[in-house]
Design a protein around this nucleic acid. Structure first.
Length: 867
DNA sequence: TACTCCCGCCAAAAC
DNA sequence: GTTTTGGCGGGAGTA
């Protein structure tokens, strides 16, 4: 009941528990009967033993402080005797919980009156539940503490007070932390923030969730079985869990230390955020545990292990209990063919007025805007989340086209995340929804850097690439130490592996308009990144991460983008809105949000040009902002302003005609894949099959959908080719680090393969403009085109100078086998590297399995791959 | 029987 | 080396 009546619950808590605890934490203790035997945490003090009875006892009176006192008093004598029994029977926690919970139940239970009975009744498991414990915990603190007051939480103290072992407190705190209700300030010390930022956090999560899980959720909801099936496959194939993980890990490192990542990947916090995302993304707002577990497992796990599934479910229950205590969800059951399935329904806020940005501002927290990112305040979290998210995306890839697309998108994102060792930024970026947040950072990162090693290229995936890029860039930089930006250059070097989607012929007009408007808005979406910022900053710090402070702003943008509606859309930048078919896409213009169906599409879109509606929708918003940013960025091509890189957004409404050529590099990974606007004359792109000719493509590069946040480079039209940059300009460094921003410049992109480019690059694919439209989900060479989903913001690009991208194909060679994608198309967006044979990946990962997320692994690989 | 999820081992991470 | 964190899964309570 408490759950259902949050208000009441809280009120109650505050009145009673809270006051007690806070005001006099000790008193509570006293009140609480401590179970000497059980309570580990119980400090001797508490141990005092006052019989818990008091609490337990249901007194007629509501739990008011006074009532408590009465109880205590009354209990006094009996307590003593009962003590022993109670020890076992009642724990402080229980007691407190009961007391805490307004529920009549408690009273009922207790009412009996006699202590003995109580004892007999012995607290049931429920009474010991994490949910109740959490309620007690929450009761201790005000939901909306004064900004001025900072409440610190001592884990030990709380544990002792609540009469539980610290381990349990961690469970609670981790979940609360994921929502920014608390933040860790030091060992054993957390800071209570209350719900002030909850809406923002949720918003951010929602955005991120859309990007990451939008399609999946929809998909699942519609086809669980299929999905499952797919997932299984995907996991096997694509999910290089390790890679994904790696992403996460890296990302985290950004924020925190890399070391933490491994564990954090699986962190309850991240899981919590992801879980929340699922709700926020779900149209029905109902998420079954099995689906959630599947989705989450995919992300992290390589193999679909039943035991893992069970474990995941257990964790989800833990999280759900806390969320329930927060009044955000409630338990329900979904009846399906199979029968009744446990599920939870989101009963928390659905719309979030605020902008996500603020979160970032909140000192303690930061939301990593990135979809995948972690919202968690802690840097570590943020990064981790992002990574994880990305991973998930990747992993989650559905076998089905849609799924694939999505997967691709996610993968790309993930990849991006991973790649950038730092990823976090990327990850952030990648997330479309987050895009806002991400935007700034990414761009920065993105800049044209030439990375030699960067394996990851987010680009490839287009969307994903974007986010990744930044990170990638960063990563490359860090890794190489030379993230070289290409000064001024309009070029970007892409790692061979990367895939690019180029889109041409987007609705430039629309975009432009949107952009303009966007500009007007002045959003600098930079702000958008807010959430991301922190994370980004950390990661990016080098760049510009806009100061975290920015977050606020960022959030706003994000918020804008992803207003409820939009959020539906997968942000994916990818969005290209309607690629070729725009017509279909068309529709949803404003909706931005793509319906579930869209979602799927959008992912796909990201990858595939075609991605119609979904992409459209999303793009609209985010794109606009992005575009705007781009525009700005473009202004300074040279400088990669963080924000610059944007994905152009299209007006959602307007369908685009995306025309793409998907150029696939041969080896899948190694080679680049891009989409060239169909419009262009094929000739324009002269890709020798073997080499990489520098291409001038008046196309837009569309980063992965995720990019939304990132700058996309779009060249709407195929303008005349840009001046080609000398291939040589880009060193073989394959890194594609092109900064998104630079790309963002939107100027038409010029893609030139470096001389180095290996012939592998399969131009051929590129040749087919048409194909692209379809699914390009697969990076695999075979699938070249699929990528179409790019979102273009041609407009943006249009005006701008052309960007030259050079593709390197570094000998793509080296592509690690991993990179090479197996036949599976599922991999879609994965960067070439990511694409690698799943099997291989797995193998590679094998060792890492646990610690490193697949993403991470990927990253690692990629990083090495450069080799 | 299936669902829940408490409990605490134990290892990674952080001191 | 010690302490803090927290992943993990056995297994018991519930429905």
């Amino acid at each position: 009941s408490a759950v259902t009546c949050p208000g009441f619950f809280f009120y109650y808590k505050q009145e009673n528990i809270f006051d007690r605890s806070r005001m006099a934490p000790e008193t509570p203790i006293k009140n609480e009967p401590v179970d000497l035997s059980k309570q580990k945490g119980c400090t001797p003090e508490r141990s005092p033993i006052t019989p818990v009875k008091l609490i337990d006892r249901p007194q007629p009176d509501p739990w008011t402080p006074t009532a408590n006192l009465k109880m205590l008093i009354s209990a006094a004598s009996p307590d003593m005797r009962d003590r022993e029994k109670k020890k076992e029977l009642f724990r402080p926690i229980e007691n407190s919980e009961q007391s805490d919970t307004p529920d009549s139940l408690q009273y009922d239970m207790v009412d009996d009156s006699t202590v003995d009975e109580f004892e007999k009744q012995r607290p049931s498991r429920k009474q010991k539940s994490l949910g109740l414990l959490c309620q007690k915990f929450l009761a201790r603190y005000p939901s909306y503490p004064l900004s001025t007051e900072k409440t610190t939480i001592s884990l030990d103290e709380v544990a002792s007070i609540l009469g539980v072992e610290r381990r349990r407190i961690y469970d609670i705190v981790n979940v609360l932390e994921s929502l920014h209700l608390v933040s860790r300030v030091a060992k054993n010390q957390y800071c209570w923030h209350g719900r002030h930022h909850l809406s923002q956090t949720l918003k951010t999560l929602q955005e991120a969730g859309e990007l990451q899980y939008g399609e999946l959720m929809n998909f699942f909801q519609h086809k669980e079985q299929d999905l499952e099936y797919k997932f299984g496959e995907q996991k096997k194939e694509t999910i290089p869990d390790s890679q994904d993980r790696s992403l996460m890990d890296f990302s985290e490192p950004d924020c925190t230390s890399a070391s933490a990542n491994s564990r954090k990947d699986k962190s309850l916090r991240i899981m919590s955020q992801k879980f929340v995302m699922l709700f926020l993304v779900s149209k029905t707002k109902i998420v079954t545990l099995d689906i959630a577990a599947k989705i989450l497992i995919e992300e992290t796990q390589d193999t679909v292990d039943h035991s893992k599934f069970k474990t995941k479910v257990r964790r989800l229950y833990d999280i759900a209990n806390v969320l329930t205590s927060l009044g955000l969800i409630k338990k329900v059951h979904v009846t399906e063919e199979r029968g009744r399935k446990p599920a939870f329904k989101w009963i928390g806020p659905v719309e979030f007025p605020g902008k996500t940005t603020n979160l970032g501002t909140c000192a303690p927290y930061r939301i990593c805007a990135t979809g995948r990112q972690r919202f968690t305040c802690h840097t570590s979290f943020n990064s981790a989340q992002s990574c994880e998210e990305t991973r998930r995306k990747v992993s989650s890839e559905p076998s089905s086209p849609h799924q694939e697309r999505q997967a691709c998108a996610t993968e790309t994102i993930l990849k991006s995340a991973r790649n950038p060792s730092v990823t976090s930024p990327l990850s952030l970026l990648s997330v479309p929804g987050d895009s806002d947040f991400c935007v700034n950072p990414l761009p920065q990162a993105v800049f044209p850097v030439v990375q030699t090693d960067v394996p990851s290229l987010s680009l490839p995936n287009g969307i994903s690439s974007q986010p990744p890029h930044p990170s990638a860039l960063a990563a490359s930089k860090t890794e190489n130490g030379k993230p070289t930006l290409l000064p001024n250059q309009p070029f970007l070097c892409f790692p061979s592996s990367s895939l690019f989607m180029l889109c041409g012929g987007l609705q430039e007009n629309n975009l432009r308009e949107s952009l303009l408007s966007a500009r007007d808005v002045g959003n600098r979406n930079a702000g958008a990144q807010a959430a991301v910022p922190s994370a980004v900053c950390q990661k990016r710090s080098p760049h510009k991460c806009a100061s975290p402070s920015a977050p606020v702003d960022d959030e706003e943008p994000a918020a804008k983008k992803q207003t409820m509606e939009q959020r539906d859309l997968p942000l994916s930048l990818v969005v290209s809105k309607k690629p070729l078919e725009s017509p279909r896409a068309e529709s949803t213009p404003g909706s931005g949000c793509t319906s579930a169906g869209h979602l799927e599409a959008f992912h796909l879109d990201l990858t595939s040009p075609a991605a119609p509606e979904a992409s459209n929708k999303e793009p609209t918003k985010s794109l606009d902002s992005q575009e705007q940013e781009k525009g700005s960025q473009n202004k300074d091509p040279d400088e990669p302003s963080p924000e610059k890189a944007h994905i152009s957004t299209e007006s959602t409404n307007q369908p685009f005609l995306p025309q793409y050529l998907y150029v696939q590099s041969t080896a899948g990974l190694s080679s680049l894949n891009f989409l060239l606007p169909a419009n262009q004359a094929p000739g324009a792109i002269s890709l020798a099959a073997n080499q990489l000719p520098s291409l001038s493509v008046p196309c837009v590069m569309v980063p992965p959908a995720a990019l939304a946040s990132f700058p996309l480079v779009c060249s709407p039209t195929i303008t005349s080719p840009l001046p080609t940059v000398p291939d040589g300009s880009f060193s073989a460094a394959t890194s594609m680090s092109f900064s998104m921003s630079s790309l963002a410049s939107t100027a038409p992109l010029f893609i030139g393969t470096t001389a180095v480019v290996t012939p592998k690059v399969s131009p051929a694919p590129s040749v087919d403009p048409h194909q692209p439209a379809h699914s390009a989900q697969r990076l695999s060479p075979a699938l070249p085109r699929s990528c179409g989903a790019v979102k273009l913001d041609s407009h943006v690009c249009m005006g701008h100078p052309v960007t030259l991208l050079k593709l390197q194909q570094p000998s793509s060679a080296p592509l690690t086998p991993k990179n090479i994608r197996p036949v599976h198309h599922e991999a879609f967006f994965k960067t070439p590297g990511s694409l690698g044979d799943p099997v291989v990946w797995k193998k590679n990962e094998g060792n890492q399995t646990r610690s490193a997320s697949s993403v991470q692994r990927r990253l690692e690989i990629s990083s090495s791959s450069p080799d």
